[in-house]
Design a protein around this nucleic acid. Sequence first.
DNA 1: AGGCGTAATGTAAGCGGTTACATTCGTCAA
DNA 2: TTGACGAATGTAACCGCTTACATTACGCCT
Lengths: 340, 340
Amino acid sequence: MNKNNVNKSVTMRDVADHVGVSVATVSRTLRNPEVVSPAVRDKIAAAIESLGYLPDPAARALASTRSDIIGVILPSVSNNVFADVMDGIYSAVEGTHHSVQLGYSRYAPLSEENLIRVFLRQRPAGLIVAGIDQTEAAQALLREAGCPVVQIMETGSTPYDRMIGFSHYDAARAATAHLIAQGYRRPGFLGARMDPRTQRRLHGFRDELRAHGIEEGKRIQTTTRPSSVTLGSHLLAQLMDLAPETDAIFCINDDLALGAMFEAQRRNLRIPDDLGICGFNDMEMMAAAEPSISSVRTFRREMGEGAVQLILDALSGSATQEKIVDLGFQVIQRRSTRGH
Amino acid sequence: MNKNNVNKSVTMRDVADHVGVSVATVSRTLRNPEVVSPAVRDKIAAAIESLGYLPDPAARALASTRSDIIGVILPSVSNNVFADVMDGIYSAVEGTHHSVQLGYSRYAPLSEENLIRVFLRQRPAGLIVAGIDQTEAAQALLREAGCPVVQIMETGSTPYDRMIGFSHYDAARAATAHLIAQGYRRPGFLGARMDPRTQRRLHGFRDELRAHGIEEGKRIQTTTRPSSVTLGSHLLAQLMDLAPETDAIFCINDDLALGAMFEAQRRNLRIPDDLGICGFNDMEMMAAAEPSISSVRTFRREMGEGAVQLILDALSGSATQEKIVDLGFQVIQRRSTRGH
DNA sequence: AGGCGTAATGTAAGCGGTTACATTCGTCAA
DNA sequence: TTGACGAATGTAACCGCTTACATTACGCCT
C-alpha cells in the first residue's frame, strides 16, 4: 500500500528484516519461488507489497551478469514503419520482467556497430537489430553475442541467430506483377533513401519487368534523401517530365505514394486510368485516401511481437528449430490500381 | 584497436593492471580527469582504447547511486507526434554519456504512475514526462524525484520541476480565430482520443466561438477512439450529416484533417469554398496535400531537444531560473483555408 | 635540515542484489 | 531412539565500479 517510498529506496534487506529471513531467501522467492516454503513465500510477498519494494535493476544485472534489457537497434526514430514495430515490441514485453532499450543508427552502419557494442556491454537478455546489412565487425559481435539475437524486417539466408521478416525482393516483384496484371505496360519506380533494403526492392521491380520483357526506360526515379510526402510529389514530377509515357508507379513506401498521388491530381492525371499507383507497407491512410491507394501490406507489429517472442523462447529454452520466420506480405488492391 | 572482446568483458581492473595503477585511478580519469596527472591520464586513455574497454553501466549505477539513464514516459508509440519528440530527444542525448529509457503509458494514468515508479527505481539522471495530467501519487513521486524532471508537450502553471511546451488552449483558439477571420461562420470540431490534452483544445475552440458570438450547434464531433485518417473521414461524414451547415472544421490533429479532406472530396465538397479545413501539428504531409492543408505548427523536435537540454543543465548546475519554456505555435495558412 | 602543505595515487568499504556452499531442521526407516 | 537424508534457510563471496579516507612523494619555507 504504502508505495511512496521509492526515494527512500526500499531494498531487499528491508524486506528480509521485515519478515525475519535472510536476503537470500527473499532473492530466491523472487527468482525461483518453488524452492522456498509456501508460508515464507507468502509472508515475503506481503512484505514486498506493503513496503513497496522494487528490485534495483542495476544491482540485479551486476550480480547475475545478465540484465533484463532487450536491446533494439533501428535505423530511424521518425519513420512510422518502425513505430509500428516498436508498438509490437513494447506490447510483447509488457507483463514480462524485461525492459526495452532503444538505439537509433540513423541508417549509418558504423553507428549501428557502435550501438551493438554499447548494448552488448550491458549483457542484454536479447538483441533485436534491423536488417542484414551490418558491418563485418558488427556481424562478428552479433554471432557471439552471448544472448539471443533477432534480425527483423527482412529474411535472408544466413541469420546470425534468428530472423523474422519478409523478402523485400519478392514483395516488390509481387507489387510490380500486380501493376502489370492490371494492364499497365510502362510502370515506373519511385524510391527515396536508397539503402540496401530499398535496393532489394528495386531489384525485384527490375527483375519482374524483365520477366515480362518490359523496358524500364527512364522510369526509375530515386534519391538518397529521406522519404517524405513532399518528396513523393517531387519524384513524380521528375518522372513525368522525363518519361511521360509512364502509366503506373510502384513507390518504395506509402509516403511517396501519397505525395505522388497529390502531384498526379495537381497535374490532372486521372487515377487509376492515366496513372496507377502502388505504395509499400500499407499504412492506415492508404485505405482512407481518395482514391484509395493500393499497397503491399507488411506485418510490422507482428514482426516486433514475434521478435520479442523469439527472444523469450530462446531464454526459456523453448525455442523451436526454425531459425527464420517469414511473415510474408500481401498485395492489397485498391482503386488506385483499378481495384474495388 | 582490438575492440572485439566485448564478450570477454574487459573491466576496469584489466585497464588498471595494463597500466600499472589502481582501479581507483582509472575510475578517476573517467569521472574527473583533472585530478589525475596528465602522464597517467594519457597512458590510461591509451589502454582503454587498445583494450576496447567499455564501462559497465550497471556497476556504475550501483556504485554511484545514480544512473546515466534519462527516462522518458510518453502516452503512445505509434503517434508520430511523439516520434518527432523522440527524434529531438535522441539527437540531444547523442554525444553525451547518457542513455534513454522509454516507457509507454498507453494514455493510462495508472500505467504512467507505475512507469514512473519503475523508472525512479533506477535513480535516473532525469525524467521526461508528457503533459500535466498525472495521478496524485505520480505527482508526489515526481515532486520528490531526486532528479531533474521535465514535463513536455504542454505549459501549465505548476510544473513539478521544469516544463517545456505550449498552450493547447491558446493554439486551438488561434486556429479557430483563423477560421473565423477567413470568413467561416459555422466552424465545426473534429476530435479523437479525447484525453485531457485534447479537451483543452476543445475548450479553446469553444471559447473562441463564444467570443465571436457563434453558436456551436451540433458541430462538435468527438470520439474516444484513437485517431486515424479513416476516423477523420468518418467524423466528417457524421458531422456533415448532423450539421450540414458546417462551413469549416478544426481538427484535433493532422490525421483527422487528412481523412476529413478525403471525405470532403468524396462528397464533392469544394475545399476551401464549401469547407475550410485546419489541422493540428503541421506534419510534413500537410504542405504536400492537394489542396495543401492549413495547420497549427508545433515544435515537437525542439521540445524533445529542449527537454534534454533542461536536464543536462540542471545536472551541470547551469540551470536558468525559468521554470517554464513556452515554445509557442504558429498557425500556418494554406489553401484549405483560402491561403496562398 | 626538519616540518609542512599539496598533489597524486592507493586502499578498502560499500552499492543491492545472486548464488555456491554450509547449516539447520524435521521426517522417516531401522 | 537414533541416524540419514532431503528440504528450507542462512552465510558470505562476488559482480564492476565509485569514493571517502589514508598514504606517499615531493617541493618549499624557515
